[in-house]
Amino acid sequence: MPTLREIQNAMHRSLLHQDNGTMHRYIVSDHLAAGERLNIYRNTHIGSLSAVLRLAFPAVCKLVGEDFFDAAAAVFIDSHPPIGAYLYEYGAEFPAFVEGFEPAAGLRYLPDAAALEWAVHRAVHAPDIQPLDRSRLIEVAPIDQGRIAFVPHPSVGLLHLAYPAHDIWQAVLDGDDEAMAAVDLREDAKWVLVERYDGEVRVSYLSDDAAWFAARLFAGKPLQMALESGGDDAPVYLADHLAHERFIDLKLLDPKIIH
């Protein structure tokens, strides 16, 4: 008689790796074969996760069509089973998967569109966390301000997109064929900031200076290092980050680590 652990391992091998050998012995085969019964669960698993991915990547799905998307999703799901039951976190590796997915190689902008959609999805579902109380900045002595490290809000994402994925995303979701036709794939690469502010997800472009500054702050680098890379307008960028509540905490880094 198998233990529960043995049964659960065998069922996972069957459902996730199509290895039915052991599982067949554990269940009753009658007018339906064991494999047919197990397929019902396997199909629900794949169908549910495909639906999760379609919801997280609606523009990618529209760009390639539902059949193509589902076929790609099935390959992704096979190689990336979820590690938790909180499915808003499922799909983080999908943009990288799309980039390496040979059948979609003709759509060069697709990985960028997927990366943007994942950032938007994260921003939509990020937990509600109180922003940094700005009075805490004033409490830091001027001599220590350079070693402030900020903790970004979990909704904030910064992307460097080689293709105008934002324009494509907007046009596809709006069903605006004219805007889609006007997209120029030869445009320069752009920095895009994604965030949820005042309950709404916002996507905006950043200059190179602003992006370098933001990238350092979001990575928890010391403020001094960010200011040195942010150009003359760095103080303005900092004020903008604070005004839009992009940080939830700050700490003072050890001077020994900084230098």
Binding site: N9, S48, V52, I83, A85
Partner: peptide, 11 residues
Amino acid sequence: VTDGVCVVDLL
């Protein structure tokens, strides 16, 4: 869930 991997169905 088994071994930290989740099948998305009520098994």
